[in-house]
Amino acid sequence: MTIRRAVAMSLFFLTSLTSHQLNAQQAKIMDADLERGKRIYRSVGYCGNCHGWPGDGRTGRLLQAPEAPSLRESELDTETLIEVVKCGIPGTAMPYHGRTAYLDGSCYGGMELSDFEQGTAPPLGKTFGDSDVFNVVAYLEAYVIGRKEPTIEECTEFFGNPNARACKRLK
């Protein structure tokens, strides 16, 4: 698949949610557990391996990780974030994390993995349930999206350690 086609396909997928899904998901975001969301980001989904611990797409990334966009500069709305976290982005390296993704009819209009052309399905990431999809999206919206450059305070709070090795460069 060419990059251009992958991008076009991704944009199509990102606009395919139904209004019924939106209402239910918005309600769940309201009740989300932000601490749990942080835990999912940090040590269940290992989102920082690609996006960096502050979500800037740069800081503290894993060596073998694919390039990932800055979440701090993300303009995606809540519903799209939920679908991206759960279902990944077809044609890109963004994996799907939902335990029921492509099984429960919730991904991109009910797609299943067998619907994809070979090599275009999103890869499998670390998986978690729908409630944690909501939790991690709520965490992103509360603590990541819209933030500017990461700070030492943000870093030590993220790692819960005033002497965290990852934060030394920010001092």
Binding site: S43, A164, R165, A166
Partner: peptide, 10 residues
């Protein structure tokens, strides 16, 4: 060894 969970190391 300091098992620092923030260390961005392999």
């Amino acid at each position: 060894i300091d098992k620092d969970s923030s260390a961005g190391i392999l």
